[in-house]
Structures are given as C-alpha cells and as structure tokens.
Nucleic acid binder design. Structure first.
Length: 598
RNA sequence: GGGGCGGUAGCUCAAUUGGUUAGAGCCCCGGACUGUCGAUCCGGAGGUUGCGGGUUCGAUUCCCGUCCGCCUCGCCA
C-alpha cells in the first residue's frame, strides 16, 4: 500500500466511476475562475488531468485548487469520469479525475525553471545546479530508465552465460601508470594513501587466479584527467573477465552482448561484426576507432607524390617515415568553397600538421588549390583515388603519425559538416592486433597501447620474450592480443587476453623501463599470483555511459548521468569539491599547500 | 597548461558609433473568466549588467585582471 491507488499513467476508460487517489506534481494549471480548474498531474509514469468543479466540491477545496502552481507536490482523491472531449496528446486523454479531496503534500517556492516547459529549457549550468528539478522532466526520467534497463540487461545476459558479479575495492593501492589517480589519505596509516581505482583490472585478473572463472561487475572507475563532452573523471564500466578462453571466444560472447542490447533497446538486428587490424584502421581511417559508416578513406600516394614537383610533398617524404596521403571527397567540388577549405589548415595545425591542401576535379582537370603541382601525376592520381567529375581531394603530407592523425580528424570533420554520415546506421566492428608498445621520443620510454597486462599474441610470444629494449623497431612491431569494440567511430569497449605467466609479465615491466625491484614493489601481488597456477584468461570493459549515450542519441555524457560534474570537475548542485577543516586534515596527517581558499 | 565562445530580472533573450528612466516573453503576485489541455484577458512586482580595476563628462558597450560555464588541444596505461 502507498498513499496512492494508481500512478498518473494507469487510468483509462475501464476505471470510470471508481474513486482513486493520485500523487504527483502540478504539470500545468488552467483556471477558469472559482468554478472550474484543470490541473495536469504528473508523476514518473505519465500525466492525468484532474478537475476541480464547484458542482462536485466544496468552497474550501475550490480555493485550495485555485492556489495550485507548477510543481506543487499534491495528493488528489476523486472520481474517474469520461471527458467530454478527449485529448489525444496524452495516453490518459480520454478520462479525467473529478477532485473530491486535495492535499498539498509540499508547496513549491518560485522555480528557477519549469521542467514541463521542454521547449524553453535554461542552459545546462542551471539544470545541473537544480538537478532535482531537471530530473522531473519526462525526458530525463526516460534516460534514467533506459540506463537501468541496460544495466539489467547486462546482468541478465552475463548471468545466462555463467558470469557472477563480484565487488572489488574502491580504496586501492596507487599504481601511477597511465592516468592520474584520485588519492585518499589514510588516517590509520600516517603518511599513506589509497587511490580510487582507474579500473578493477588487477582485481578481476586475480579473481580468475582465484577460480571465479567468469566475472562481471558494473563499477565506478575514476581517472583524474580533464573531462570532455563525452568523458567524466568518474564513470561507469561494465567490467568482465573469463578464464580458459582465447580471443575469438571472448569476442563471440561480447558481440552477443552488444547485439542483445541493440535488439532489446533499439529493436536493431546487428549483423556479425567485421574485424579490422589496427594497422588497417590507422592506414585507411587515420584513427584506431574508425567510423565506417562512410568512406572518405585515406589513400597513400607517397610514390606518386615523389614524382610531383611540389616542395610540401618532397619535404614530407624526406622526413623519417614521411608519407603523402589523399582523401577523395565525392561531389565536394561545389561544397568546398575557399571559405570552407581555408578552415582546414588551422584545423590540422592543432594536430601538428602543416596544412591540408586541396584540389577540385572538374571536367577532367584539377583546379584550384595545389592543382598546378599535380600535372605530372594526374592520370595516376585519378586512377588511384577513383576520382569522378565533381569530386574534391584533400591532401596530407608529413610524418606517418602526424599525417594520419591530422587527416583522420579532418575526415571526421568533413563528414560531419558536409553530410557524409548516413542517418540511422549502426556500424560495429572489432579492431585488433594492436602494437603492444609505442615508443615515446620525449621520455625515451615505451608505453603500453592497451595496458601492461595485455598479452602478446601466441604467435608473437617467442619474439616478445627475446626482444631487446634498445631495438625500438622490433619492440614496436610486437602485436598484442588486445581488441576494441567500435560503434560508429566510438570506442564502446576494449579488452585483451591477459598475461598469465609471471615471466611474460616481468618482461613487459622490463620493456616499460621498470627495474625488477620497482616492479616487485608495485605489482608483487600480481606477479606472485601469476606463479600459483594462474589460468589463461581475458576480458573486456564496456563504457556504460557511452553505451547509453549511443542508445538515447546524445553526445553529452552529462545527459546520461544522474548527477554529473562540470568540465572543471565540480558538482554544481552539491558544490563539491569543497574546503575542509584543518582539524579534518590534521587527523589525516595532511596539510594543504593551496594559496587561495574559498 | 594552451586556444575559442559565452556570462544583462528567477529563466530565455534585447538594448543604435559609448548617452540620459537597461526592455520583452515566460515565471511570480493581484484580479476576471464553467471545458481547458503551452488556456485566455487585465494589472503589478522584479536589476550591484559575474566580480575587481582602468579610460571617459558619461561604460551593459572600450581596455586590463579575475571567477564561472561550455567546446577543444595536450592529457585520458
């Protein structure tokens, strides 16, 4: 039993004549003087019109009804009756409730905004500050429910596949590889700190060593890095791990999960996911998470460019790993005005490239831009790119990494701004065969492309174990058994087969420039665990926030989180983070070095 | 840490080359109205133009600094 007999979505013509009680908020108020008042009541589930009629109620009740305003929280008892004229806009539009009793549960004061006025919402800052009002909007309720359904679907699917949910600690050991840790001072252990988990990676692997076989957890993770529109410091991961599996077996089960989510949530039947190597993704899309809904592929024309007498090309080719690449943009000759192409240069400069020259291909000739440099290679270029009349071509010339990155990003920008992305298309794929390591010139060290617990592929194992730290080309060429699930150009999940042999794990640490002593201090528990009969295992982590973003069709991660933070990591509603007392700090053996305090 | 855009009433916005009392709609308050459904109509209240400094006879407007929000690069093993 609750205070009400029905929710605001439940009543229909079958309830006519019944006395019912509803609880909810005033969604709209339409008074017609002392004698007749309409109020739309809203709760989580829907809207029902209730009527105050002087012929059906007493004077005091009419007066109380007349004082109702948007978002007052009320309880109403009355008799269900048919409407003279139904309102087809709402599901309960054929009935209304003639009020016999009204109870004001909670009067609202003047609101910063009216949640029922979807067309005139305030800016996001106000919505976040008054999140409890924003959350009353049906659109927000729908998102919360969508997120709930995805979480439930997740638990159901993996339960059916014999995964069990296990909780791992939130107060962890700091392992300052990769992202910055959030730290928590220890009161009991003076001078010691916990870190919040960037992911439960090591715990889930140790669960495999502990015989759990198949593990699931929907879990908060924390990375103290600057947020983005699609990234928060605090986010939710669907964390998975399996024992006694190889890569294809992991992919099969994870692909089944994605298919199930898309079927249940969007009624979309996804075909089997294509697979693409990391190398192919980088070569043809300039990014490790290619959006394959459209072409605009990067084509290597280095050999042709070498023959063109164009300084930009020849200079680029003279660089270490220099390349020249081109993108055919179908039908863009008319779209690429000078104004449009002038913006390409500053855009690619952000990514370290010098520029992105263009040409148009009209009436069998190159024109505008760098056309005059392409005379000698015209026919070969047309053939290589498959040019048709009315196309445009964008070029990039630089070292492989810079050129690829710049053109990859430019490709996405052009696709978005000039409508090359088809509506309603879902292109999933797996990217695999990542390099294990990338050499960073600046620090003179390697870092892991996935994470340092990713195994080399079986075929690479021997070469990996024999690799010499100083042999950069060889180390960079070693392929790992990692994989990412990509959906429309966004990484929604990633994982790998993990290392389950201690000597292999030690070799990774060695190549990462960690001394044996250092590795022992940081990861002794893992290295130890791997020596006690660790099973082969692998897994995946999906980003729950990203998944829900795709399903509801938003690019703003704050839309799918009930209480998100701003881009400076501030909770605008709670005003966190905040200053704490010196006594609190003293207890934790911490003193602030901050110069300014609020 | 760098770059870009923004901040005027509770909310969404306006305000001429710097100009005299900073406007409108919604919300709120008061009133009218018995079939509305974004109800309608009449009246009213509501402002340290984010904050601090500067230029000027005069600053919402121009300049400097600062705070906040959004987007982005770096960053995100």
């Amino acid at each position: 039993m609750t205070m009400r007999t029905h929710t605001c979505s439940q009543l229909s013509e079958s309830n006519i004549g019944q006395t019912v009680t509803l609880c909810g908020w005033v969604n709209a108020y339409r008074g017609h003087g002392g004698g007749l008042i309409f109020v739309d009541m809203r709760d989580r589930d829907g809207i029902t019109q209730v009527v105050f009629d002087s012929e059906g109620g007493n004077q005091a009740m009419m007066q109380a009804g007349d004082r109702l305003r948007n978002e007052d929280c009320i309880k109403v008892t009355g008799i269900v009756r048919a409407r003279a004229k139904a309102n087809p806009k709402i599901p309960t539009g054929s009935i209304e409730v003639l009020v016999t009793e009204l109870e004001m549960l909670s009067k609202t004061k003047k609101l910063p905004f009216i949640p029922s006025n979807e067309k005139d919402l305030p800016n996001e800052e106000v919505r976040l500050r008054y999140r409890y009002i924003d959350l009353r909007r049906p659109a927000m309720q729908s998102i919360l429910r969508t997120r709930h359904r995805v979480a439930k679907l997740t638990r159901d699917y993996f339960d059916e596949h014999e995964f069990i949910e296990v909780e791992t600690p939130v107060l962890c050991r700091s392992t300052p590889e990769g992202a910055r840790d959030f730290l928590v001072p220890s009161r009991n252990q003076e001078g010691m700190w916990y870190a919040l988990p960037q992911s439960p990676q090591l715990f889930k692997q140790i669960l495999m060593v502990g015989g759990c076989d198949r593990y699931l957890q929907i879990v908060k993770c924390f990375r103290d890095e600057d947020p983005r529109a699609d990234r928060q410091a605090e986010f939710t991961q669907i964390d998975l791990e399996m024992s006694f599996v190889n890569r294809d077996q992991v992919l099969e089960i994870m692909e089944g999960f994605a298919k199930k989510v898309w079927k249940e949530m969007l009624d979309v039947e996804l075909p089997d996911f294509p697979r693409m190597t990391y190398r192919e993704a980088m070569d043809t899309y300039g990014i490790d998470r290619p959006d394959t809904r459209f072409d605009l592929k990067l084509v290597d024309i280095s050999d042709l460019a070498a023959k063109a007498e164009f300084g930009v090309f020849t200079d680029a080719l003279a660089k270490n790993k220099g390349v020249v690449k081109a993108i055919r943009v179908p039908g863009a000759a008319t779209k690429f005005s000078r104004k449009v192409t002038d913006k390409f240069n500053p855009f690619v400069e952000q990514f370290g490239a010098g520029g992105a020259p263009t040409v148009k291909f009209v009436d069998g000739e190159f024109s505008t831009g760098i056309a005059k440099f392409l005379g000698g290679i015209k026919d070969e270029l047309i053939e290589r790119l498959g040019l048709e009349d009315g196309d445009a071509v964008v070029f990039g010339a630089d070292s492989y990494n810079t050129c690829t990155k710049a053109l990859g990003e430019l490709r996405l920008k052009i696709a978005k701004e000039h409508d090359y992305i088809p509506e309603g298309k879902w292109n999933f794929l797996w990217v695999y065969d990542f390099p294990m390591f990338e050499y960073d010139e600046e620090s003179g060290r390697y870092h892991s492309l996935h994470h340092p617990f990713t195994a080399p592929t079986e075929a690479e194992l021997e070469r990996f174990m024999a690799a010499d730290v100083k042999d950069i080309d060889t180390v960079e060429s070693i392929v790992s058994d990692g994989y990412d699930m990509i959906c429309n150009g966004s990484e929604i999940g990633g994982g790998s087969i993990r290392i389950h042999q201690q000597e292999v794990q030690s070799k990774v640490f060695e190549l990462l420039g960690m001394s044996q002593e250092e590795a022992t201090i940081k990861f002794s528990f893992l290295l130890d665990a791997l020596t006690y009969g660790a099973p082969p295992h692998g897994g995946v982590a999906f980003g729950l926030d990203r998944l829900v973003m795709h399903i509801i069709g938003t690019e703003n991660i704050r839309d799918v989180i009930a209480f998100p933070k701003s881009l400076t990591g501030v909770d605008l509603m709670c005003d966190a983070p905040n200053v704490v007392d010196d006594e609190q700090l003293a207890e934790l053996h911490v003193r602030s070095t901050a110069t300014a305090q609020a």
